[in-house]
Design a binder for these strands. Structure first.
Lengths: 143, 143
DNA sequence: ATGCAAACGAGAATAATTATCATTCGCGCC
DNA sequence: GGCGCGAATGATAATTATTCTCGTTTGCAT
């Protein structure tokens, strides 16, 4: 059932190996959009694939550098990755259940550009997270 | 020469102890606005005050909870603290020299509130950092 | 099929932070 | 001005996230 996709790795200049294909498949066909290294490691282990934790870290970092994944540093000290689908967005994170929603606001984006320019910075990257409680929902997502 | 200020601690519900007074003094009268636990530890050590690293971590966390300091999680894996002067602001960080500038933009703030509301979140906190290079300056600040 | 560099897996090493616990300190009380 | 007690401290062990090391395996071109 594993829908492997070696072409992605080839085009990214990465050799097509089993661990890489499995990790990529997890992000493309798995249920969670946002996963930490530990999450990936456990999910692979659960599905019977024995990929070493060190390899997971290596692969995630390589994928980030290749532009296949994006890394986020949410509160809590661990890096979280998601598939890079070209469209930039920021995140709002529920502090109760850990659920993550994505949003994009062009007004915020353009203000950031203006501010950076005014302060004499060449913008490289930015990171915006809103932390709160998803009161509306009954927090159906677990951490 | 240490200008101690026990009243701050009292009013924050914290017992006035030597390590706490020294850390507070560093933030109020030191040259760096943004410091990690290790930074604080080293600076105290340099000025002849022997405060344990564990104590530094404890005091920083207590000060954060008491509202005296604000904690930031910039890229790089370590927490950075600054004096809480009531005025919220975000940060732009130079990736070359580590220099930090502060800014506040009411348009960004209000857009965030609106977005959180639309997504059904009670906003708790937020974190916005822009990462870039301070091209204008010749990067006079070192990390 | 063969070979070799690149990738892997297990476990050691590192970095930031937190927990443990015996000793010391701040401070109210007599 | 000393006493006592609980809170705070400091040294160090423990934890957590991540990276490094190194002997073994694998992808892939010949």
């Amino acid at each position: 059932m594993n829908e492997l996709e070696p072409e992605y790795l080839k085009s990214a200049g990465l050799k097509s190996t089993l661990p890489r294909l499995k990790v990529l498949d997890l992000f493309k066909n798995g249920q969670e959009r946002h996963m930490s290294a530990e999450d990936v490691y456990q999910l692979l282990r659960d599905s019977g694939d024995n990929v070493g934790l060190a390899t997971v870290y290596r692969v995630l970092t390589q994928f980030e550098q290749a532009g296949l994944l994006v890394r986020h540093n949410f509160e809590g000290g661990k890096s979280v990755f998601e598939l890079n689908e070209g469209t930039h967005h920021d995140h709002i994170v529920c502090m109760q259940c850990g659920h993550v929603e994505e949003f994009y606001d062009s007004a915020i984006e353009s203000r950031q550009k203006k501010i950076a320019a005014e302060l004499g910075f060449t913008i490289h990257d930015h990171s915006l997270q809103i932390y709160g409680d998803c009161t509306k929902a009954k927090c159906p997502h677990r951490r």
